[in-house]
Design a protein around this nucleic acid. Structure first.
Length: 952
RNA sequence: GCCGACGUAGCCCAAUUGGCAGAGGCACAGGCUUUAGGUGCCUGUCAGUGCGGGUUCGAGUCCCGCCGUCGGCACCA
């Protein structure tokens, strides 16, 4: 099947028609001019790109940012640039509205694909990466994006990652002061220890400690630290990965390999210190509630209490959000991995417990988390003391308690917790009642009110009067509200020394090291005793050493007990280094890990601002100008990028890590903004039909024939249709090159912006694109003679009707563009153009306003038309039209008249008519009189300027 | 199971504080242009807002209850 070519030039096509060939000519020409002239360069107030006069000459600053891409070798499809086009239209609009706009694009170029390609082909990842970046820059330029190309950076450039390493050193050389709730330089901590203002954690004085002991204590305070802890080991990738990179079913999000929990010595970052601020400061951000909810959920703050239960193996501390239910705790459950299990296990139980632990260990996390599974568990034979009533309660182990959350042990309150209730039922454990559920609760379950829990079908969760909840010092009996119950119990726990109120988080510290090649080396060396030392700033960057062995040792994906071996380990010449770090020349060993891919993206927006600065990652005055708090918007404005556009998939990865780094830099005084991204906008995805054959394998969507009605076939065999994100894996990608060939970049841009709201996902329909192409053809024809190419615009003023339409259009378009509602702005502009098409000739005033309004959307054709209209400067900085308020109001208006809510007639009244006038006119209308048929109106409602409703 | 978003023509989508359901594009039909097809131009057809209630003079919009789609979280104590 071949699509009819809808746009090709044929011999009778006028030579100056806006065809795809002309569009391409115009586009390539202006792209060259823009590049040559540096049209989109934004002036800085200070630093290497300083042009203070130019800054002063422009209006308020505006920082527009896209989530930068990984430079894939495959190239772009039409789904990729949706957000980029959106930011470009916005940036161009705001330039015309007078703002000083900084807007560029960089590349997040470290990461696995280039490394894996290098392993396969022997091509160094730097070469692949640079080729891909060059290719991607070319593709982005072809879209006409108005980037300041001087500011484009790649995270893989040593001059860039020099500063990534510098920030790592800042984090390493900082500690979190819990009292001041901020990070401070580690030197200040050392000074406090040395001055005796602070004792070692074990209570000894600083002076009593050996240097080695001091080192351990200091290193334990650092925000970046090495620790032996359970980490996610992925043998298939040969590296460890962060919690955020493990999918819900226990696999790596890259490569989909199994991930195992293993104790390993790795770099961590103390993001947990910032948990509260990361949650609380969400209030300051103009982000969607959905993303904020995801971040809150990931951090997982829950208020509760720690409670101590004494046992033969020692104190077992549990975390609970319902300390008020402590009187109902009739057994305990420990995670099978809990360290006390061996000691608690009675001799006759040891075998059973060992078997259960083995069985639990064999299960993946996701299997353990399947809550529909029936509860399993084993009694240890041991008992603990419930501190609130002294009762001896049995200690069980069960895999529904997870070692990774809370303390790995729970107090079970079966009457008030679904899981504990199920467990108690299954193993016939006691279920004491401690609350009287409301009568309605019993009624719904077909029961009479009873405290005999044997009759209860399930646990009761909620507020209800407490019973059986008192001891000699405390009584909750009669309280009805859990907030009160919790507060009373927490107070008692503290008095009794049996526990305290606390806050628990799901968030874990960030596992920061990877055993790969293509990443930022750590600016760390180890001395003979294995102590880490940060290299001084003067020794940065630590460049990635050359090698032709890029691969870490990888293992069978299920080879759980293998160990990571970084590619850098093998480079002995590089690893061993002789340096003077203040104690004279000594030999050190370099750290052979590299940073995770997220490192470079944690701060890139600031390098855009001052990309060539060799003194600092970003001049403070430059950072403050572009990112400082905008207190004129809101007194508590946190600062940061004015508009950040990207996909929702980074809700808890990049966006959480970047906020964390930014806050550290803020605490240490390196930036003036508390938050990196003041406003976040999530663009939708472009979806496309994908087709599967009978083997459930995707087939090339472009070669599928058929329709909704007749069914679809591929190679004459039936296939089934589904919808999915456009991309290689679904074989449904559409290349932008096809669109340029057939319509040009302006049409593609316009189509993507017109097809729906920017934040909505919508299906791509190639056949719809032609509508925007026709619009641009009409626009062109309204101003240019298709035979001669001459401008046909006339100097006569527009007629009143056209003038009013123009100003109404301007009024709406300005608002819609500012609010990123490009689809409705475009609809209004098409409407205006359709009206202009009906005129004999296009008045200049209308033509110029239309070109200016469309310039952000379709910049190439508008730049061309702007010249044809006789101007010799770029339209980029020409003021966006402003509506004349006088032309927005009509003298008379037509309003509908309803009778009992149904439209029965229309009246024409003066626009400023008062209510009485409108009412009189409505009641005088023939059709209304006929509808009323003699009945007397009970009431007449007049909505000024909108309608009249007569009620009978 | 919990949280969030969304359901408007054959399709993508519009619709100020609740105020005439239709702006725009596609598709479809007819016409003009054309040797013809296509391009281009003109004209036109189609729904009453997922379902059921409620509030209101008036509901796509607000409230309640369902149904469906998408996304996130999930034995989190």
């Amino acid at each position: 099947m071949s699509e009819p070519d809808t746009t090709a030039n044929t011999p009778d096509t006028p030579s100056h028609r806006y065809t795809s060939a002309l569009a391409q000519d115009i586009e390539l020409r202006w792209q060259q001019v823009w590049a040559d002239d540096g049209t989109f360069n934004a002036p800085n107030p200070a630093g290497p790109l300083a042009e203070p006069e130019a800054v002063a000459a422009r209006g308020d600053k505006l920082f527009v940012l896209d989530m930068f891409p990984y430079p894939s070798g495959v190239g772009l499809h039409v789904g990729h640039p949706l957000g980029f086009i959106g930011t470009d239209v916005y940036a161009r609009f705001q330039r015309m509205a007078g703002r000083n706009v900084v807007y560029t694009m960089g590349f997040d170029a470290f990461g696995l694909p280039a490394e894996q390609y290098a392993v396969q082909t022997g091509t160094h990842p730097a070469i692949t990466t640079n080729d891909n970046i060059a290719n991607m820059r070319r593709q982005l330029r072809r879209l006409g994006l108005s980037h300041d190309m001087r500011r484009s950076v790649s995270t893989t450039d040593p001059e860039y990652y020099r500063w990534t390493q510098w920030i790592f050193s800042q984090v390493f050389n900082a500690w979190y002061d819990e009292d001041e709730e901020r990070a401070r330089p580690i030197d200040e901590l050392i000074a406090e220890f040395e001055a005796g203002d602070r004792d070692a954690p074990d209570g000894r004085e600083w002076s009593e400690l050996s240097p080695a002991e001091r080192n351990v204590i200091i290193d334990d305070h650092r925000l970046a630290y090495v620790s032996e802890a359970p980490v996610n080991w992925c043998p298939g990738l040969g590296t460890v990965v962060a919690n955020e990179e493990v999918t819900a079913d226990g696999r790596s999000d890259r490569g989909n390999f199994p991930v195992f929990k293993r104790n390993m010595r790795q770099w961590m970052m103390r993001i947990t210190s910032y948990a509260d601020r990361l949650i609380d400061d969400l209030e300051l951000l103009d982000w969607t509630d959905a993303i904020k909810a995801m971040q809150r959920n990931w951090i997982g703050r829950s208020h509760g209490a720690k409670v101590d239960f004494e046992s033969s193996a020692g104190t077992i501390t549990v975390f609970t959000t319902r300390p008020d239910t402590l009187f109902g705790a009739s057994f305990m459950v420990l995670s099978p991995e809990h360290p006390y299990v061996d000691e608690l296990a009675g001799p006759d139980k040891a075998d059973e417990i060992a078997a259960y632990r083995k069985q639990a260990a064999a299960k993946k996390d996701f299997e353990r988390q399947d809550e529909t599974r029936e509860k399993t568990g084993v009694f240890t034979g041991a008992y603990a003391t419930n501190p609130v009533n002294g009762e001896q309660i049995p200690i069980w182990i069960a895999d529904y308690v997870l070692m990774g959350y809370g303390t790995g042990a729970i107090m079970a309150v079966p009457c008030g917790d679904t899981r504990d209730f199920e467990f108690a039922r299954k193993f016939e454990l006691e279920i004491p009642a401690i609350q009287t559920p409301p009568a309605a609760w019993f009624e719904e379950r077909g029961l009479d009110v009873t405290l005999d829990t044997r009759q209860w079908p399930e646990a009761f969760i909620g507020d209800a009067p407490y019973v059986n909840s008192s001891n000699a010092e405390l009584s909750l009996d009669g309280l009805v509200n859990k907030v009160e119950g919790i507060s009373e119990m927490n107070a008692w726990l503290e008095r009794a020394g049996a526990g305290e109120a606390t806050i628990n988080y799901k968030l874990r510290d960030w596992l920061f090291s990877r055993q790969r090649y293509w990443g930022e080396p750590f600016p760390i060396v180890y001395d003979d005793d294995g102590n880490p030392h940060a290299l001084p700033d003067s020794m940065l960057p630590v460049e990635l050493p050359e090698t032709d062995q890029f691969s870490p040792r990888t293992f069978g994906p299920d080879d759980e007990f293998s160990n990571p071996e970084s590619p850098l380990d093998r480079l002995e010449q590089w690893v061993n280094v002789e340096l003077d770090l203040g104690d004279g020349m000594q030999w050190y060993r370099r750290d052979t890990n590299v940073m995770p891919q997220w490192a470079g993206s944690c701060w890139y927006e600031m390098r855009y601002l001052d990309p060539t600065n060799t003194e600092t990652f970003c001049d403070p005055a430059v950072e403050e100008y572009w990112m400082g708090p905008q207190t004129q918007i809101r007194p508590d404005h946190p600062g940061g990028v004015d508009l950040y556009v990207g996909g929702v998939e980074h809700a808890v990865l990049h966006l959480l890590y970047a906020r964390f780094w930014h806050k550290v830099l803020f605490d240490l005084g390196h930036v003036s903004s508390k938050e990196p991204y003041a406003r976040l906008f999530n663009q939708g995805y472009i979806m496309a039909a994908a087709f599967k054959d009978e083997r459930e394998i995707y087939v090339e969507a472009t070669e599928v024939e058929g329709s909704d009605d007749d069914g679809f076939t591929y190679d004459d065999k039936p296939v089934t249709r589904e919808w999915g994100k456009m991309g290689k894996s679904l074989k449904n990608a559409v290349s932008p090159d096809e669109m340029y060939e057939e319509y040009g970049a302006d049409t593609l841009r316009l189509y993507e912006m017109a097809m729906g709201p920017l934040d909505a996902s919508r299906p791509w329909e190639t056949r719809d694109v032609v509508g925007m192409y026709r619009f641009l053809q009409r626009l062109w024809r309204n101003m240019v003679d298709e035979e001669t190419g001459a401008c046909t615009v006339v100097d006569e003023a527009p007629d009143d009707e056209t003038d009013k339409l123009l100003h109404r259009t301007i009024d709406v378009v300005r608002v819609e563009m500012d609010a990123l509602r490009f689809n409705t702005a475009i609809a209004k502009l098409i409407e205006l153009n359709n009206a202009v098409t009906k005129l004999d000739a296009t008045p200049r005033a209308v033509a110029e306003a239309m070109v200016r309004m469309l310039a952000p959307l379709v910049p190439h054709v508008c730049e061309e038309l702007w010249r044809k209209l006789g101007h010799d400067e770029t339209v980029t900085y020409i003021e966006f039209p402003t509506a004349d308020p006088a032309l927005l109001v009509d003298d008379t208006i037509e309003v509908p008249v309803q009778v009992n809510g149904k439209v029965r007639g229309r009246i024409t009244i003066p626009a400023d008519a008062d209510q009485a006038t409108a009412e009189a006119a409505a009641l005088a209308d023939e059709k209304v009189i006929a509808t009323l048929d003699g009945r007397t109106p009970k009431k007449v409602i007049v909505v000024s300027g909108r309608m009249v409703n007569v009620v009978v």
